[in-house]
Amino acid sequence: MNSRWAGTPPGAPPDGRGGRGARAVTGRQPLWSPAPVPADVAASPLAVVHVGRWYGNVVAVNDVTFGIGPGVTGLLGPNGAGKSTLMHMLAGLLPPSSGQVLVEGRPAGRDPALYRRIGLSPERDAAYEFLTGREFALLSARLARLPDPDAAARRAIALVDLEAAADRQIGGYSKGMRQRAKLAAALVHDPPILLLDEPFNGMDPRQRLHMMDLLRRMAAEGRVILFSSHILEEVERLAQQVLVMVAGRLAASGDYRALRHLMTDRPHTFLLRTSDDRAMAAGLVAEDAVLGVQLVDGALDVRAADYSSFTRVVAGVARRAGVTLYELRPTDESLESVFAYLVNR
């Protein structure tokens, strides 16, 4: 764990459970908990300190604490996890119901001057349909009161690779083009902090790769980039650091590779189809890596202790039992099941 990046959230075990720089956050702290603010969190360019946000009796974000430093950080979570709410609070567009959101040490919100330092690309697909992409970037540059708005708009359009469509009205854009137009507007004033809410939605693979390269380059220049996604692979390819939100809570945070290990190093279930299911089941139950085997609908439903140890032994078991493997696939690889595991452990 980069100590500048995240502080210990309330309720997290002191050893940073999960090891190797990642932790699953398991504590269900009461909102009135007077837990101290870790110094490294408070010193981060983006700091979220015991933040809660609720609408009536619906809790959208529940006592979340983290800090974000330079580099690309992925905010991962299923739809409805509270990612957009958190993004809006970081952008100063939504006050927290409890706790504090700090941008470079200043409270986010009610301070328009802060938007010289922040660029936001919202998730909602809203746009000034009657403007061209170039006009939208130029408008953003002028509203940002840049000294040379034309040059800034040209640069932003080029950065997001929108030159070919820049003089067409946004109303006629594809979703991927709209995303790039929004990104151009967010980048136009060259902000040191970028908040991107589901920025890859609707982009084709080529656009996605281009955008990832761009964000990597910008992060290498020292910018703080936080992007949200519900797709594990996007986060895997881009983010060095990850925050996992589930049901409004911070389920895990830390270095992506360590988190990935945490996600794979958990009980898994697999489906096996073989030439002799009974012989295969007899061989599997003798293995330490296997917790249980069931014959269900002409296939074996195997519960393994963890992903890697099971996949190492399964071929050997089949060979020793003289069984041919027809099919082997994990049955609980959905992001939701991974999140559920992280929350419940």
Partner: peptide
């Protein structure tokens, strides 16, 4: 209503 107000609110201009 259409959400474009965000593009004005995230600019350093007095409300």
């Amino acid at each position: 209503e259409d959400g474009t107000i965000v593009y004005l609110l995230v600019r350093p201009i007095p409300r």
